[in-house]
Each structure stands twice: as structure tokens, then as C-alpha cells.
Design a protein around this nucleic acid. Structure first.
Lengths: 348, 348
DNA sequence: GTTGGCTATACAAACGTTTGTGTATATCTA
DNA sequence: TAGATATACACAAACGTTTGTATAGCCAAC
């Protein structure tokens, strides 16, 4: 077989026309006659012509590569965001390079080097939980490469980002519990330097306020949102003189931990304590009872992030004006937060 | 700032030497004097020189891109394999393009087109569960692009692949149950056109044989290995005149389904029925009791796959001789398969 | 003092595109 | 009929590298 792939000049030679004509014909350029175009297309197909992206990229100064940095792709959320990203990116002719920071700043920094090295045209990033500074992104800015954050953003930073309305999510989750009749609602809260946890907590506070309920500090448990944190958290809450009748957790992981410990102690969910999580992870369907959770529109988030990048790319002045997209969360009500009154009646 | 990045010729100009000298200096070529090299390196650093991969790739006929197709990256297994792949690939100077087939052949086909289009130098693939033919891979072969399968391979296909010894895994899992004293061991079995499920089943059979136990067909439940399949499977088994005292499932997902249904019915694990899964998924640590499972050496598998690709790349004759790497599985014993006798004593 | 063999560098072609500009032919306008 | 316009194509430069080959300078050997 052909040791070398068929190139544009092979087509030109075989058709007896110039290289530039072939190039323009393939690109459907208006100044090429339909007859010629058809000839070119036909031969290209026959010879299994595949354009050389690197050559084109070199000439056009583009790589058609889009870089993505996520903390991990274990769970449901980032996996789905990546899916959304890939869908839109593919449509725009981009290939996606995915990097995992493993929730570690140092790794995040390395990821950036890698992507810069690969000459990506833009970088989409959701911060590691340990990231507290912006310095390692300066290089990206200096090279005038569009930078879009999604979900996790550093507080008070003027950058383009797509986030969900975490405050609204926290508000809805808590309000839902209150509507079901629960009155002593606790909260598992995460690192406050990250927008998401801060806002979810704010939503929780807002809902309490709306119901004229006092904020009981001892009902707010600060942690890292892991499974074990949930176990520790519920243990702590149960030990209180006046334990809560419901918990709104800023993460599904910690709520699963809580659920496990509750079951171990022989307590029933939601009869004894109702639970609501955040992220709508897949495993919320693995538990018994099914967990109420806040859906984050993961796929939409990914799509929006790419669209934001595409918009920024158009602004050739290089001084990208930061834009922000806010998606609305969606409360998925399931068994773990059933109506209190009704349950009590049933329990009789 | 510089509208255009610094190139090799900028360096050459500023140093008053030729482009080729700079290129060779950067590559640490022996025919360049140390003095010159140092000058070049110094200036390169000062000017933040970043090599243009596309130009180099064009010249060298390489893309430094490696394509990966996995069924999905939701669970633990493929996520970790990808991690292993990325580690070794990065060391060899490759960037990794990840595609998800979503367990769908049509999607898989599209993924291949995408990767071919991106001019990857090799493709690593784990088949979708619905893939039964090889036709869509012919194009890859024709272009003489190294193709390496991992984990899921089509039966009887002469291709390079890295797999685990699934038979051994099934054998160990079953033998472990028998050693613990269980004597009526059932099996959840998957689609038999895929190597992995076929071999796991064979391992199960081999272990029974070794213990001179008869193969009871009604104790083998064929399914698709999803959570619901596990529920259905255990329901079926419990309804038998003589139910099993243990189940070895070819997947962790179905074993979780079984566990949930057992608990729902008030049956205890492992006292009433012991369970062993396959894959050592993360959520085996989310369950109560913890699940015994067969670890698949995910990261090693990814690493081995890349190494296989690198080897094939060296064989420039293009006619790659298929090689196969077989990794040894690792039984992770946890609570769900405790010793039968001991449990009975305790239960007294 | 010619030849040979180093060493360190320069020259130039090539990789496969894209794209600005030049040009031949045909068509239209005055 | 001369000139303007439009159409459809060709020419050639450029993108930033790598790499085979040529060359200049130098030293040793005959």
C-alpha cells in the first residue's frame, strides 16, 4: 500500500490542476467552479484523502486543540461536563485534551504546562480544591489564550466562567426540607474559599431566614465533603443535645457517609432524619432510600463553557472581557426527603 | 507584548548563528559545541521559547497524539486505566485524546474517524459491549496505525492486546468462596462474545471442577451486568427450590444490585449469602458490608497498553506482529465473603 | 605542501497546507 | 473596438521545524 498518505498535491497532479485550486475546492471556496469542485471531491473520496491537520494548523497558526483541566473524572459530575464539552467542541472542529489535577495545585500547574506545550487554543478549567492562588494561570493570560472557568472558581476573580447558581441550589434544597415540615435542618459545608461551597451555604442561610428560623451555628458542620466527613458529621450532630431532623449537605459524597452511619445506628431515613445532597451523582440511585439531590446541569455546563471559549476566540483584540454564565440548578426530589407529617402518619 | 511567539529563527538571528544550529543545539545534538548549546539554551529560556509542535510534527511526520477509546469513564476501572495511559504516554512525549463510545458500536465508529482525523499515531481501545465485528477497525489497519486493545477484546482476533487473566480471576474468586466453606456457589455471567465474561465464567467452572462439585446450570444467571440485572438475578436465585449460599458475579455493579435486594429482604451478607464481585470499583467501599472483589490492575493495564504501542511503533515494517500481555488479577478479600463456619459460630 | 580527517557550523530542501496576488479567457459596456 | 469587469484558475510565499549535505577551519600525517 501507499507508504505515504495522499496529499492535496497528489490530487492536483492527477487532475492536472494547481494545488491552490484543490485546496480552495475542498474548502468550497466561491471562486472555484462547481465542475472543478465536484471533480476534486470525487477524487478525494476515491483516494481516501485525509487533510493533514498539522500542515493546515501550521499555516493557519491554529491547533484545533482545546485543553480541559478537571479535578478528577471519577464521579458523575465532571464526567458529564466533559461529555458536554466534547460534544460542542467536536462540532466546532476541536479535539479535546483532558487533564486531571487530582485536586492538587502542583499537578494543576503541570497540566497547564502540558496544555501550553501542546499549543491548545483555549483552556477550560475547574479548580482543584486546594487551589487558592491564581499565579500559575498568568502564563496562560500572557500568551493571550482564552481561559474559561467552570463550576469551581476562585472568589473575587475577574475571569470568564460558567457556574450554576449554587446559592439558589442551596436555597431550594433547604426550602424543600422546610416545606416538608422539617424544622431543625443541619448543613454540611465545604471549604469557603471556593465559590460553590460558599454559595450553597448562603442559600441554606437564606432559606432559614425566609422561614424566620434562627441560624444555629452548631448545626453547621464544616468539612472536606468526603464520605468519611459525612460519617463524622452525622456522628457529631447525633451527639448534640438537640439533634437535627434533617441535613442538607453540599456534596453527595458526604451525604452517603451520613446515610451509612445512620443505618448502622438503626435510624431511619427520612423518618428519623431526612437527607438532601448536592450534585445528583449516579450513586444516589445506588442507595436505599434514593437520595434527594441538586442537579447541576453538568452537560449544559460543559456546553456553555465551550461556547464561551468560542466567543472569546472571536474577539481578536486579545483583551478578553470576562463573561459569566449562570445556570439554574434543579432539585431532584427522591425518597430521602419525604414529607414529615405523612411519614409520621404512616408510621402509626 | 509579542503578537507572535518566539521561534527558532528568532533565536538564530539574535545569536548570529544559523537556524539549523539552533535546532540541533536545542536537541542536544553531539555535533554542536557546548559553548553554543549553552548560549542557545540560555536565550531560549530568556525569551520563553516554546517549540512549535505542529511544525516539528509536520516535518517529522508525527503528531505526538495518542488516541484512546473507552466505553465510558463513569466507573473506577476505565478512569484508572486512562490514568495509567496518561502517565506513560506523557513520559514518552505523547498527548492523549480520549473518546467515549458509550457502549455503542456506532459511536465507536465515529470515535475512530475522529482519531484518524486528528492523525493520532496509535489507537488504544476497549470495546463497547455491543461490538461484535471488527470491520470499523480495518481502516486503522490499512493506514498502518498501531492498534492495541485492552481489557475487552473480540474473541479469536489476532491483535495486540493487554488483558488480565480473567479466568484466573474467576477461579480465585470462586475458589475463595469454596475455601470459606460455601458449597452452593452461583454465578452472574455476562455476554459471552466478550473475552472477559467468557473467561471469568470459565474460571468459575474450573474452581467447581477442582472441588469436585457439579455444575448446576440453574445457578448460572446470564445478564448484562447492570445494577438491575443483579437485583433480578438474586431474586431468581432466591426463588429456586434450593437457593445458593454464595454468588460470584462477573461485575461489581450487579453484585451491588444483589446486595441491595438481599438487605431489602432482610437477609444478611455474608451470613445468609456471601458475595464476590469483579473490578474492585470504588463503590465497593460504599456498601455495607464491604464487598470482596477482583482487582484488575487498572493502572498497570493502561501503562502496559501504552508500552505495547511504543514497541509496535518501533517496528517500522508496518506489519505489526500481534503481541499479548496478560496481567494477573488480585483478589481483594473483604467482609462480604467471610468464613462460613466462623460466622455460624459467631451467630450462636 | 598536498591529502585526509576531524569539528563545528551553514545552506537549503522538505513536510502539506493556506492565501495574497497575478493572469488568461470570456463577457459586458460605452 | 477598446477598455472595464468578472470568472476561474495558477504561482509562489509563508508557517516553524528537521535533517542531509556542503563547507570552513584546523591539525596531523605522509
Amino acid at each position: 500500500m501507499a507508504r505515504t498518505r495522499t496529499s492535496i498535491s497528489d490530487l492536483a497532479q492527477q487532475l492536472g490542476i494547481s494545488i491552490s485550486t484543490v485546496s480552495r475546492a475542498l474548502a468550497d471556496h466561491p471562486s472555484i467552479s462547481d465542475a472543478t469542485k465536484k471533480k476534486v471531491w470525487k477524487l478525494a473520496k476515491a483516494l481516501h484523502y485525509q487533510p493533514n491537520h498539522m500542515a493546515a494548523g501550521l499555516r493557519k497558526g491554529r491547533s484545533n486543540l482545546l485543553g480541559v483541566i478537571v479535578p478528577h473524572i471519577d464521579g458523575h459530575f465532571f464526567t458529564m461536563v466533559v461529555k458536554g464539552i466534547e460534544a460542542v467542541a467536536a462540532k466546532a472542529g476541536y479535539n479535546v485534551l483532558i487533564c486531571q489535577s487530582n485536586e492538587d495545585v502542583a499537578h494543576e500547574q503541570k497540566n497547564i504546562e502540558t496544555l501550553l506545550n501542546a499549543q491548545v487554543e483555549g483552556i477550560l478549567v475547574s479548580l482543584a480544591r486546594t487551589t487558592r492562588t491564581f499565579t500559575h494561570f498568568e502564563k496562560v493570560r500572557m500568551q493571550q489564550i482564552p481561559l474559561v472557568f467552570f463550576d469551581r472558581v476562585l472568589e473575587g476573580l475577574d475571569v470568564s466562567a460558567v457556574v450554576i447558581d449554587d446559592r439558589e441550589g442551596g436555597y431550594q434544597a433547604t426550602k424543600h426540607l422546610l416545606e416538608q415540615g422539617y424544622r431543625r435542618v443541619a448543613h454540611f459545608s465545604g471549604p469557603q474559599h471556593l465559590n460553590i461551597y460558599k454559595n450553597r451555604r448562603q442559600g441554606y442561610l437564606d432559606a432559614l431566614h425566609e422561614y424566620n428560623l434562627p441560624v444555629v451555628e452548631e448545626l453547621i458542620f464544616n468539612c472536606n465533603m468526603a464520605l468519611e466527613d459525612g460519617e463524622r458529621g452525622i456522628e457529631y450532630l447525633l451527639a448534640l443535645p438537640e439533634p437535627p431532623d434533617a441535613v442538607f449537605s453540599a456534596s453527595d459524597f458526604s451525604v452517603v457517609g451520613a446515610l451509612q452511619l445512620l443505618k448502622q445506628r438503626g435510624l431511619r431515613v427520612p423518618q428519623d432524619i431526612a437527607l438532601v445532597g448536592f450534585s445528583n451523582e449516579t450513586f444516589t440511585s445506588f442507595t436505599d432510600p434514593l437520595l434527594t439531590s441538586v442537579d447541576q446541569r453538568c452537560e449544559q455546563m460543559g456546553q456553555a463553557a465551550v461556547r464561551l471559549f468560542l466567543e472569546m476566540r472571536e474577539e481578536n483584540d486579545g483583551l478578553y472581557s470576562p463573561r459569566r454564565v449562570v445556570l439554574q440548578p434543579d432539585l431532584m426530589v427522591r425518597a430521602s426527603s419525604g414529607i414529615k407529617q405523612q411519614l409520621e402518619v404512616e408510621a402509626d
